[in-house]
Design a protein around this nucleic acid. Structure first.
Lengths: 204, 204
DNA sequence: GACTTCATGTACCACACGGTACATGCGCGG
DNA sequence: CCGCGCATGTACCGTGTGGTACATGAAGTC
């Protein structure tokens, strides 16, 4: 009765509702963080925002650090889901696939997530531990499918890797531009210019 | 004798040594911030690091906010100086100019500054007020010289703008890739691929 | 040589933070 | 109906923060 908190939340002691509550909390936390940033997050404010006392966040996640790890992981998963959920009808030209992907990425409803992405990058580059694992997958995780697409399109492996890396970097750079300036038309035009260079001027 | 601090540092009351001291402090602060990040900066730690009491930082800058403004502004100025100090001998092909600029930007000694750039971006995208002014100049300030270079190379204005925007975004995306992965060779290869697409395969 | 000015330091304040101890109350097994 | 386990809340603690009041001492002035 002295200490009734399970010191190992997430262990086998958690079943059913408890696990549900936990993921429900982390979902709400990601939403809040996508909207308000991760920089000056405090357990108290987060708790107040999602309707729980900061005590419970500690209870479910052990510490602020672990909660942040969970938030970052979940946010990453959401990002990746967005790509994998992109089921394309076959017969589309690569340039059109890219254009479609760009359209989805720049959906204003995703702006919060994209901002969060760059914010987490900034923190991770500083060595903030809970954001550091992101750096690993930041490039490589996205590279694999892109390389696959390039090789399928007939590029030799080395070129495919460079081209994939280039495409990823350009998309991110333009995304940053869009978030900073909000100049949708200008950024879209730059993207079109890129597609022209990347896939050739003929849209097959 | 009650309050001997000038409430308006930077006003006409500051002359000579005072102003020098101030800029000396902000220089040291930028160095420290480039090395240790801006996220969890505290006046006390910064003061200890650069050899001054946190009291004096308040004295010279009025508040932490204003100090951060100064730091960001100075860091920006340094970045831009880096570009303008790039006096190139004429007769270089645009692709070679770009390659040279890329070499300088990716100098490991600049890694701290580059990281700081992305960190500030992340914060600014969140609406942190002292970083917000950065967003304005983040694209446009760099676009002007690039557009000038493109038009000089014979592109029509609209295309020049899109191409400039694209080049800037790609450089930044690849810079982020480099900082995250450290894979210098891979990123350089992607850059070469971009230059090939951007300026054509022939290196005049 | 007394007076003033001002840069700098020391000690302090109120506050918000992460984290902990303890209370409370709900839901379920007997 | 009881009793226990557990989710949740409240009150607290130590710490570090930005910012302020006041002390101190070294220059410069008349």
């Amino acid at each position: 009765m002295v200490n009734q908190d399970d010191p190992r939340p997430g262990s086998e002691a958690l079943h059913g509702t408890d696990r549900d509550r936990r993921s429900q909390l982390v979902d709400a936390a990601v939403d809040h963080v996508a909207a308000h940033g991760i920089a000056d997050l405090s357990l108290r404010r987060l708790g107040a925002a999602i309707g729980v006392s900061h005590r419970m966040l500690i209870h479910y996640f052990g510490s602020k650090e672990q909660l942040l790890v969970e938030i970052v992981r979940t946010s990453e998963r959401r990002q990746r889901d967005l790509l994998s959920r992109l089921h394309l009808e076959p017969g589309l030209a690569p340039a059109d696939v890219a254009r479609l992907l760009w359209q989805r990425l720049t959906d204003p409803r995703l702006a919060g997530q994209e901002r969060l992405f760059f914010e987490i990058c900034g923190q991770a580059l500083r060595g903030r531990p809970e954001a550091a694992p992101v750096l690993e997958g930041l490039v490589t995780d996205w590279l694999e499918p892109l390389v696959a697409a390039e090789t399928a399109a007939g590029a030799n492996p080395a070129t495919a890797r460079s081209r994939a890396r280039l495409g990823l970097a350009t998309v991110r750079g333009l995304l940053l531009d869009l978030l900073a300036t909000g100049d949708r038309a200008g950024v879209d035009a730059a993207m079109e210019e890129f597609l022209r260079l990347y896939y050739g001027s003929d849209r097959t």
